[in-house]
Design a protein around this nucleic acid. Sequence first.
DNA 1: TCAAATTACGCAAACGGTTGCCTTACTTTT
DNA 2: AAAAGTAAGGCAACCGTTTGCGTAATTTGA
Lengths: 342, 342
Amino acid sequence: MSINRLPTIKEIARKLNISTSTVSRALHDHPSIGWVTTMRVKQLAEELNYEPNFSAISFKQRKTFTIGVLLPNLSEAFFSTAISGIEEFASTKKYNVLIGQSLDDPEREVRILESMKNHRVDGMIVSVSKNTTSFEHFEQLQHYNIPIVFFDCIPERTDVHYSACNLQTGMLKAIETLVAKGITNIALINGPAHLNASKQRQQIYFKGLKMHNIPYDPQMMQTTDLSKEGNLAAMDKLFSLEHPPKAIITFNDYLALDAIVAAKARNMVINKDIYFISFANLPIWSYMNERPLASIEQFPHLQAEKATEILFSLMEAEPGIEVKKPCYQQVIFDSELILHSL
Amino acid sequence: MSINRLPTIKEIARKLNISTSTVSRALHDHPSIGWVTTMRVKQLAEELNYEPNFSAISFKQRKTFTIGVLLPNLSEAFFSTAISGIEEFASTKKYNVLIGQSLDDPEREVRILESMKNHRVDGMIVSVSKNTTSFEHFEQLQHYNIPIVFFDCIPERTDVHYSACNLQTGMLKAIETLVAKGITNIALINGPAHLNASKQRQQIYFKGLKMHNIPYDPQMMQTTDLSKEGNLAAMDKLFSLEHPPKAIITFNDYLALDAIVAAKARNMVINKDIYFISFANLPIWSYMNERPLASIEQFPHLQAEKATEILFSLMEAEPGIEVKKPCYQQVIFDSELILHSL
DNA sequence: TCAAATTACGCAAACGGTTGCCTTACTTTT
DNA sequence: AAAAGTAAGGCAACCGTTTGCGTAATTTGA
């Protein structure tokens, strides 16, 4: 068993008695190389199963053909779906994907970003950690000319590129659906108040209530830190009310899982005594026999794919150092309400 | 906003009026560089926030510092847990992880392996696709001196490195547990017959029955292609028997999910009329109110971590071309039966 | 006191591929 | 027929780091 070396451009050149530059150009269909030579090179390359050495090109071009992805948690279905969208798009462009999880810890976020910079990623896709408040670490990357596209969890600024999801369409539709069933005491269990995502849900919640002339009762909106204990505590509060809710909109699916368990512990029948609406729409619902009435789908795959597309457009435009009026690409998808058949 | 360049060894050398080779050696604590110079270099490097250029090193060393991971399906919790184990270990060694999904398609497997080779991965961790029968494509990598460590789904050969899980401990314990509850008509819904994983389960099933003097009834062992339809068909067969089973061991968790749905469709009460034992132990069970009596935990994180450890030992030993008597590292963990509290 | 050993560092090539510029040999043009 | 243009391809530098070998300065040994 001999140990093979992968063929190089030099080998091809030697075997054909031409120079390496000719081989290189031939492989790139450079016009200054004759038809015959080009064909001979390509054929031999094919025979030898030649593949360009990534490291060499990356070195020479000062590009790593790698994009960094930084998101809160890979193990959440939402994000792994997103990764899959990113990976698909990137692989068509022959790019690699380097993944980092912030675990919603701002310090980890900073460290990972630093490490990505040192790995010389060509661009980044970021879903901001839930607890991040500062923006410097992102700004720093721009000094090194590394473009960033945010998705899903985006910073509250106008000078960034992003691809996100408009929760309003799905959430208003959810409230509308509940009202149509004659339900008006609708609660919201929201995430931590400082989150952009929480603020959005709250505003839409207000708007939805107003649209249907439902007065807002502050006790019907609870928040949780999204821990199991926090989730159960929020449920406790809602059910210790004089008029407990008939329907609950939950910040996300995981919260809904806990909430459903809590409701059952109170001997309530799901989708009869109590209705749930969740954000995200995990695939496991189809296996559960007690599930929310509906979920608000945010199309993580689509969002992430679009973010990747934007990133590539930025990376490809990069060389033009002409900093024309900075034009930020911002795409927003509409969320949709998906009813779970019962 | 000026555009920074990441500092290089050359810059450090220039600023200190020494040669790049000295800087390089100093950074590596080479003994031939004096204490003072070494310190001066290190300090300046620190100040400038110097990080070695990966591409350059990778190019020069003919190593990519990347390991390839090839597994059937990233979206299965079992494998994403495994990835996490691999990623953790690799990142401590400053290695990157390149992921490929075979989707249990042998052709994709071959293609991905080829692509990994061309990406010049330094080593591979592979969980073989369920439908793979040949071994050539793996052998080919060895010609290029790329070590492979298999995990979980391993080929039936002795001349490979692997980290796997011994199903016997958990599965025998499962049968023992059932028998202790007075249940003896225990069925097995197995995966495709040609799978190594299926053969193992079958053998242990036989062994377990024999240990408790339960006669083997061929009708109590069904197989499925693991599609939803196949799974339901297997359940149909079992329940059209004269003496349907009281307990069913399922090839994996996903099959168990379908099987539970099928049982409920027959108005059976789970863990009363019928008991299930599943392989894998998905985290979602804790949220489901109808779950198997127990699951056989195979410790994917641990398995994968160990596989990575073995891979690194191989990659580090690599240079010694002295092909001493090929010694294969093979680690087997015991599975455990995890009871689900009801 | 002079050869030998040691210390501390520099020189330059190499890794594989790309690219600006130059050269050679034809082919056109006038 | 001489000047100019074109087609096809070679030369060599470069990207950042590592490393074998060479060398100057200093120390050691006898």
